[in-house]
Design a protein around this nucleic acid. Structure first.
Length: 899
RNA sequence: GGGAGCAUAGCUCAGUUGGUUUAGAGCAUCUGCCUUACAAGCAGAGGGUCCGCGGUUCGAACCCGUGUGCUCCCACCA
């Protein structure tokens, strides 16, 4: 068979993915093996996968594939999230482009469009997961609005309501005026920005209506009588219902019982006194607007103030504002500032750094707003979730970096606003009758039954003549996501079923650190509440993917590459390699296509090693007289690589158990590229057009197979392909089980390192004297332990292009001399030698050794060190000293032969 | 304002209870090679005040204190 010049991923990827699917390797059914369960963090159906998902899915696939090859019954559940507000916003936008206004549609019509959207984008996402090679169980694909899932959400809502953990009430919440819905605290993102602080003067009168003078000289200078306040939001003044000052503030003591008048609308409001106000800030006087600020709201409750809501749900000024009605709040602000200035109420503007809350999904400035919403009481649910992590039942990786964050949030958690004024999502199972009475039930019939039961026997109402209306709101998306680890196995709708029992709790959750509160903490709460068990044993947080300049990947910056384009360009394995190799656990990673190139090159390196072996396969010397000779000759190389492989296998195991996947991958990369290709294959390579000994060949094939197995979780396609090209058996790497690693002979590993050093140093000597690779040399070795070279002489000759090797007891004149430890190597060549460079190098080395010896001597002559250091440390220092002395002698002798 | 984390080669990062030949890797750089697996490659090389200062210790990249500079999270001062 003719192998292509380079590895060509495209055909290989689809071939093997199809094959794995046809063998049902990714499908799982409960059996006698231990389960390894992973639930995918369901991507939103709002768009396509970005690099953050790519990292996440790759990490999960690596863990799952490793587990699958290690005796576990692995079950990785794929799916997607309906992402209530995010998707609804996208669908509304899409409809708008088509010229359709959401308000012109019925709920049912809108949902039809939303499901079409979901089918389209959900499909794209699933295709991307497949192209990346993810070994998910497609039979278990779950969507958070599937029938059973919908029922689960409703069931949990009713259950928590019945337990008193869900309530309905009027509270100040975060309002998204674009999506026209309430948001949870977590959905608000705060950004610092420079705004302006406006100083406004309010006219003041005493209780009898007599105008009072200005408290500040500045105001007097402006010719305005009254009280001055500072605000960032002049457009809210029409909602003012008081001015508040600190009771201890003498500047305002005379205003007891006085009134202020709201500029422009001239409404009379009381002046109240409260410790809350900081006399040092601004003017020491605060305008109180209970409808539009959480602090003012609380102050209003305390002082029994009126609430005047001057902003509509779409962010325009309401009728209650009296002026600029119907205009957007920000337009109104500009106009009001202008008018205030013209009329002399605005006396001063000041630069001011403030924080504004933005809606995570629509990006608009969030408006604090009082409205009636549904809430989950969090305190009670938080306690077991906190305990599970603090006690170490759930381990967070990396380290404890996020433990403090998790703890703090749960200890200070506030009630969760779960109702959204949207259509896309699970509709709240609550019904209201004509009188506003509330019935929470699974269906309207049940709600009616409740109503009838609750009524007095004398009532004339029956199910036929009574009307119930369902709450129009839907639930926060996270109110469904928090059931994910359970309901993907129908653990909520069919509690205690075989699958839920077998697969729950999951093994590891891989997700972004940005959703620790949204999702991770809440899943733990739900798990503890409904399964009385943690939902997963380990949580692995991946960092954020940034571009190579360290910027967040975003559509607007155009720095977020398309996953399928990358796979087309480099291959899925290369993409997986590229994103993993630069991804230290929990740290942000700078994504650079450069590392994908490295991954592609790695594919080719392996591919070329395969080509080399295929060439040898045709030249096996079955009955050749070289048979035994080759086996003996290659004894060292074979024994070394066997041990090296075993050593790395246990290293990789240990790294992966610690979730240090990037390091594990680098370790395997180096084992394959450096140890296997650069050293081992060169050491056993037969001479030009010479046959290879079958036993050496077979050993090499089996090492290659093991290497592919080791790499398979990281780069599944190329490894499966090569595994099959290497051999004639038909088993698949995908499910090939790892065997226990053998004991490692450290001595041979150390010997090999020394051998590498000898080769490198001699090559360096050649290089420095401009010897071309093709020019052969004669090598003389001066050593005390000639026997230690017997197994490796042939390797040295081959690797440094020596056609003769002999031992000597004394310096060989007219040669390049290099030293390794105590041994000297004389390189004899016909070329004229550059003795000056040679001498310089030796002198440099000599100086280095001498200063090293000095530092060791200093240590050893320190009595305290000798007394206190552990014996093995002392012995090591003594060995260092002896070695350095021997080296110095060797170098000095070599120098003598040159001059 | 509160809390957490980080600072090691040009870049990205390892360095696991303080001692392992006076600090390691990958990428990038430089030199020489189109050597019959691989130029998307091979062989070699250079490159570091381990952020500054102070302390603990026989011994510090590592522990403690302090300063500086970044990053993230949380928080209702208009």
């Amino acid at each position: 068979m003719e192998l292509t010049k380079n590895f060509e991923p495209a055909a290989v990827e689809s071939k093997w993915y199809k094959h794995w699917l046809s063998q049902r390797y990714f499908n799982s059914k409960p059996d006698g093996r231990p389960a390894f369960t992973v639930v995918i963090p369901p991507p939103n159906v709002t768009g396509v996968l970005h690099m953050g998902h790519t990292l996440n899915e790759t990490v999960q696939d690596i863990l799952v594939r490793k587990a699958r090859m290690s005796g576990f019954n692995t079950c990785w559940v794929p799916g997607s999230d309906h992402a209530s507000i995010a998707t609804e916003a996208k669908v509304v936008g899409m409809l708008k482009e088509k010229g359709i206004d959401k308000n012109s549609l019925t709920r049912e019509e809108f949902l039809k469009y939303a499901f079409e959207w979901k089918d389209k984008y959900g499909g794209i996402i699933y295709n991307q997961i497949e192209r990346l090679g993810c070994s998910v169980d497609w039979d278990r694909t779950t969507f958070t609005m599937d029938d059973h899932y919908y029922k689960a959400v409703i069931k949990v809502f009713i259950d928590l309501y019945n337990k008193g953990l869900i309530y309905r009430g009027a509270r100040m919440i975060n309002w998204d005026s674009s999506a026209k819905t309430a948001l949870s605290d977590e959905e608000v993102e705060y950004k610092d920005l420079t705004g302006k602080l406006y100083y406004l003067t309010y006219k003041v009168t005493d209780a009898d209506g007599n105008e009072l003078g200005s408290p500040s000289p500045q105001d007097a200078a402006q010719g305005v009588g009254g009280i001055s306040i500072a605000t960032q939001r002049p457009e809210t003044i029409m909602g003012d219902t008081a001015i508040c000052v600190n009771p201890a503030d003498e500047r305002y003591a005379h205003l007891k019982g006085a009134f202020a008048f709201v500029p422009l609308i001239n409404r009379r409001i009381p002046i109240i006194f409260d410790d809350y106000v900081d006399p040092a800030f601004g003017t020491g006087a605060l305008k109180v607007t209970p409808a539009h600020d959480i602090n003012d709201y609380n102050l209003g409750l305390k002082h029994n103030l009126e609430v005047i809501d001057t902003i509509n749900e779409d962010g325009t000024m309401s009728a209650a504002a009296q002026i600029y009605v119907g205009e957007d709040r920000f337009t109104a602000r500009k106009k009001i500032i202008k008018e205030l200035l013209e009329k002399g109420f605005l006396t001063k503007e000041e630069e001011y750094t403030t924080r504004l809350g933005y809606s995570q999904r629509t990006g608009v400035v969030v408006e604090p707003r009082i409205s009636t919403q549904w809430f989950v009481k969090m305190k009670e649910l938080a306690e077991p979730a906190l305990k599970a992590v603090v006690d170490g039942d759930i381990k967070i990786h990396p380290g404890d970096k996020f433990l403090a964050t998790y703890k703090y949030w749960l200890e200070n958690v506030k009630d969760w606003c779960i109702s959204r004024q949207l259509w896309w999502g699970q509709q709240i199972p609550a019904w209201y009758d004509e009188n506003g009475n509330l019935f929470v039930a699974e269906t309207e019939e049940e709600a009616m039954t409740q109503k009838l039961r609750a009524m007095s026997p004398s009532s004339q109402l029956t199910a036929q003549n009574s009307q119930l209306t369902q709450d129009a709101d839907v639930l926060d998306t996270w109110f469904s996501s928090w059931l994910w680890p359970m309901e993907v196995f129908k653990g909520i709708t069919a509690p205690g079923n075989e699958e839920a029992t077998y697969y729950y709790p999951g093994s590891v959750l891989v997700t972004g650190q940005d959703i620790i509160f949204f999702w991770v903490a809440r899943m733990v709460m739900a798990g503890m509440e409904y399964e009385k068990q943690i939902p997963f044993k380990d949580v692995y947080f991946t960092g954020m993917v940034r571009d190579k300049l360290g910027r967040k990947m975003s559509k607007s910056l155009g720095n977020s590459p398309d996953l399928l384009d990358l796979i087309d360009k480099y291959g899925a394995d290369a993409v997986r390699f590229g994103i993993m190799v630069s991804s230290p656990a929990g740290n942000d990673l700078m994504f650079d296509e450069n590392s994908l190139e490295q991954g592609r090159n790695f594919n080719n390196k392996i591919w070329n090693a395969l080509k080399l072996l295929k060439m040898w396969a045709l030249r096996q010397a079955q009955d050749s007289p070289t048979y035994n000779e080759q086996l003996t000759t290659n004894k060292f190389a074979i024994a070394w690589f066997e041990n090296r492989l075993n050593k790395v296998r246990s290293e990789v195991d240990s790294l992966m158990n610690q979730f240090r996947l990037s390091e594990a991958l680098k370790t395997i990369y180096s084992l394959i590229w450096d140890d296997f290709c650069s050293w081992y294959l060169e050491w056993i390579k037969p001479g030009f057009e010479q046959p290879i000994d079958p036993s050496v060949y077979n050993k090499t094939i089996s090492y290659f197979e093991e290497l592919m197995q080791l790499l398979h979780p990281f780069m599944p396609f190329v490894t499966e392909e090569i595994y099959h090209l290497l051999k004639t058996q038909t088993d698949d790497l995908c499910v090939k089980q790892f065997t226990a690693a053998n004991k490692v002979d450290e001595k041979i590993l150390a010997d090999a390192e020394l051998l590498k050093q000898v080769i490198t140093n001699i090559r360096d000597g050649r290089n420095k004297n401009q010897l071309k690779p093709k020019e052969s040399i004669k090598l003389f070795i001066e050593t005390d332990s000639k026997e230690s070279y017997s197994d490796i002489e042939n390797i040295i000759c081959k690797q440094v292009n020596a056609d003769e090797l002999s031992f000597t007891r004394e310096a060989v004149a007219g040669t390049i001399v290099v030293t390794v430890e105590k041994d000297k190597f004389y390189i004899k060549t016909d070329k004229e030698l550059d003795t000056a460079t040679l001498k310089d190098d030796l002198l440099k080395d000599l100086e280095h050794q001498k200063s090293f010896l000095t530092s060791v001597d200093k240590k050893l002559s320190n009595e305290k060190f000798v007394q206190n250091a552990k014996p093995e440390v002392l012995a090591l220092e003594q060995k260092k000293k002896a070695d350095a002395e021997a080296r110095i002698q060797t170098i000095e002798e070599s120098l003598a032969t040159i001059s």
